Amino acid sequence: MHLCVEKTLMTTDKPYYQHLNSSDDLVTPYAAVRAGFVALALEKNRRATPFVEQARVLKAAASRIKTPMELVGIEDIKPALLTAAGVSDKAAKYLEPQNKIAAIRGLIENFLEPAGANFIEKLVFRFLLIRGDTLGGSMRNVGGVLAQRKLTRMLLSTLTVAGKSYQWLHSSMNRWASMTDEDSDIELYLKGLSWKNNDQNRTLIYNLTVPFIKNNVDLCLLNCSPQELATKKLAKATYKLPSVYLALGELKGGIDPAGADEHWKTARSALQRINQAFITHGLKPSTFFIGAAIEKKMAGEIWHQLEEGSLTNAANLTNDDQLASISRWLCRL
């Protein structure tokens, strides 16, 4: 009986004991790294699909002509021609019509006409090459996006299993929506989640620039309702209150072991800034770290911070049991 009470007190005071026995439990196994790379490859293919379809449309339109210079007269493919010419969507907004025509003519004279009868294939290849560069840029933070989706789905599942209703903030419409029976894919659009714990409002906001820290924090759990964040003015006033923050965390979804140490250094610095900012206000909210790529030395540092109390909780994103445990902890705060 005494041992049972002692363990309950320990796991309440140190919630990471619910899913971690030592620093070794935080280390990402090889199988998880391999699965992570596969997930990134699948996501890259998913994101590439629209570009491939655009290339097919471009090829079909260009197939109606016999010479490259005739492309200039096809009005509905000019944006695609500009892309093939190396002009980004952002740059195109600053160009005058004559500049756009000049860029397209440059593409035709320097690359398509020298290709002879194969000019259509050359056009499609160049279009895909430039779009591929765009895709590469969007993939740089895809690990973080996938990590946020995975954590969100675990939080939603935790609340549903516990019989708790929730509201969620739509990233595009910037509007709070109520829980429904059909919640598939809402993690693709969710940037905030709210629920009640013992009649107390809890709201989790992703990627928030905390005013008195002056830096972006990946995850902020607040003691407030969605109504207190309903307008920009209300949200701004709420975010300025140090006392409203219950927990703040860093989420690093990159799976490449080569970048693990760098991700942890960034997160460690962010967590130190968080702690320091709240100390000046006489407060100590919970802090936590969730990472996909955690190497042995890094795991040792995280475990040390957990044991000394500068970090409240931590989990490996690739371990479903750990992620479920830290999600339950967040939902119970």
Results as ranks from 00 to 15, higher is better:
M1G: 14
M1A: 15
K7H: 09
Y17T: 05
Q18C: 10
N21V: 06
N21C: 12
S23N: 07
V27D: 08
Y30I: 12
Y30N: 09
F37G: 13
V38F: 11
L40D: 07
K44N: 10
R47N: 07
T49N: 14
P50S: 07
Q54L: 09
A55I: 03
R56S: 06
K59Y: 03
S63D: 14
P68L: 05
P68V: 00
M69Q: 12
M69P: 00
G73A: 08
D76V: 06
D76E: 13
P79C: 07
T83Q: 14
A84W: 03
D89P: 00
K90R: 13
E96M: 12
P97N: 08
Q98A: 04
K100L: 00
I101T: 13
A103W: 01
I108W: 04
N110C: 07
F111Q: 14
G116A: 05
V124R: 03
F125N: 15
F127E: 03
L128E: 11
L129V: 07
L129W: 09
D133Y: 10
V142F: 03
G144F: 00
V145G: 04
L151R: 05
L151Y: 02
T152C: 11
K164P: 04
K164V: 06
L169F: 15
H170R: 03
S172E: 15
S172L: 11
N174D: 12
N174F: 08
W176L: 02
D181W: 07
D185S: 05
D185Q: 09
I186Y: 01
I186W: 02
E187F: 03
E187M: 05
L190N: 09
N197V: 08
D199Q: 14
N201T: 07
R202W: 04
L204K: 04
Y206M: 11
N207S: 12
V210M: 08
V210L: 11
P211C: 06
F212L: 09
V217G: 00
V217M: 06
V217T: 06
V217L: 04
C220M: 10
L222V: 02
C224G: 01
C224T: 12
P226W: 03
Q227E: 14
E228W: 01
T231Y: 01
L234N: 09
L234C: 01
K240N: 12
P242H: 08
Y245S: 01
A247K: 07
G249R: 02
L251W: 03
I255H: 03
P257N: 11
A258F: 06
D261V: 05
H263D: 15
W264E: 05
W264M: 02
K265Y: 10
K265D: 13
L271Y: 02
Q272R: 12
A277H: 06
I279Q: 14
I279W: 10
L283Y: 02
K284R: 13
F289C: 01
I294S: 00
I294E: 00
E295S: 13
W303I: 03
H304E: 13
H304C: 08
Q305N: 15
L306Q: 04
L311C: 02
A314N: 09
A314S: 13
A314C: 10
A315I: 05
N316H: 07
D320G: 01
I326E: 04
S327P: 04
W329R: 05
W329A: 03
C331G: 06
C331S: 13
L333K: 07
